[in-house]
């Protein structure tokens, strides 16, 4: 009798019983679970294509194993170094824009004119609502060689027009600047959320101690958002290798392929357009493994250094 009571209230229930008790909750997770298995885990089976040569009429299972040939082909052709360098360059430059949202958030958080604060926050958020295709359309409307806004302006000022769309060296600036425009306001909101949890008493105490505003920002607010910075930095490390294919496809022209052909656009072309499935899967797998490794590494370092980690 006593042991029965313990069983009903204590932790000594068997695992099976505890699972049964929570069946309602499992049922709530079930649809998400099934969809994730089908569309995220079943494709993992298809990764073997990276080591296979799939001919017309063959399936993933029946395609012939060819070992590392697909990878060898990728590494030995010029495509590898070219797409790798292009992808990495975009990734690194993108990483360098990392402090901008932090600065914007600190500015917004310390602005004492409510009207300026509110309107600038709304304005800087708007680009995030605008699609990649439209954002890049705007870039093209501005940078187009003959009808672009910038070149028309240049013409009026007597400056020679610049062929932005047909030179390699303009691809990265167009990509990065449009990226800053799109994402800074959005990312600033995340830091603003973290800043809003700064205890006002702490700020008052700092004021009484004679801290200037600059000191308060540096010694009170920045440490407060440090964990958020760490986590966002880790997350961007994980995608540091996957420059946006959607964006690049928009500004890619036959004349700027030297800088605009990144791993993503390359995989799309050889896989979907040219149907070289095995080869494309191999390139994809390579990127995925590198990204995943980077993420684990960044997470590990962050855990050691700052105690904040993603998992």
């Amino acid at each position: 009798m006593t042991s029965h009571t313990i069983n009903r209230n204590g932790n000594s229930k068997t695992l099976g019983k505890r699972i049964l008790d929570h069946r309602d909750l499992y049922l709530l997770i079930l649809p998400a679970f099934i969809i994730t298995v089908i569309f995220k885990y079943v494709p993992l089976y298809g990764i073997q294509l990276a080591f296979k040569n799939m001919k017309l009429g063959q399936t993933i299972t029946t395609a012939k194993w060819i070992g590392l040939d697909n990878f060898q082909r990728f590494f030995s052709t010029g495509a590898f170094s070219r797409t790798l360098v292009n992808t990495l360059m975009v990734g690194i430059l993108n990483l360098l824009t990392f402090p901008l949202p932090i600065i914007l958030a600190l500015l917004l958080n310390n602005c004492e004119v409510k009207f300026i604060k509110k309107s600038v926050q709304t304005i800087t958020y708007i680009p995030n609502l605008i699609s990649v295709a439209v954002t890049m359309s705007i870039v093209i409307l501005f940078c187009s060689n003959s009808t672009g806004f910038i070149n028309i302006l240049f013409k009026n000022l007597g400056i020679e027009s610049i062929p932005f769309m047909s030179k390699d060296k303009f691809v990265r600036p167009m990509y990065i600047i449009s990226g800053i425009w799109s994402a800074t306001g959005y990312n600033a909101v995340i830091y603003l959320a973290a800043l809003s949890s700064v205890n006002p008493e702490l700020i008052d105490a700092a004021k009484i101690d004679g801290c200037s505003k600059l000191q308060r920002i540096w010694y009170v607010e920045v440490p407060k958002i440090a964990p958020t910075i760490a986590i966002l930095l880790i997350m961007s490390m994980g995608s540091f290798f996957s420059a946006s294919t959607e964006k690049m496809l928009m500004i890619q022209t036959d004349l700027n392929l030297g800088a605009s052909e990144i791993i993503g656009t390359y995989t799309y072309k050889i896989g979907i357009l040219k149907r070289q499935y095995g080869y494309s899967a191999a390139v994809d797998l390579f990127t995925n493994v590198v990204n995943f490794t980077m993420l684990i590494l960044a997470n590990f370092i962050s855990k050691k250094v700052s105690d904040s980690s993603l998992f």
């Binding site: 699972i19 997770i29 494709p43 994980g238 494309s280």
Partner: peptide
Amino acid sequence: KKTLPGRRWLILFFLFTMYFSGGLIPTYFV
């Protein structure tokens, strides 16, 4: 719900898909 048995594993199960995927072609075939 913190009492849910296997909660950590389930969360990891969903999180993993954020950082590792089959890629374009394997997903296309599914």
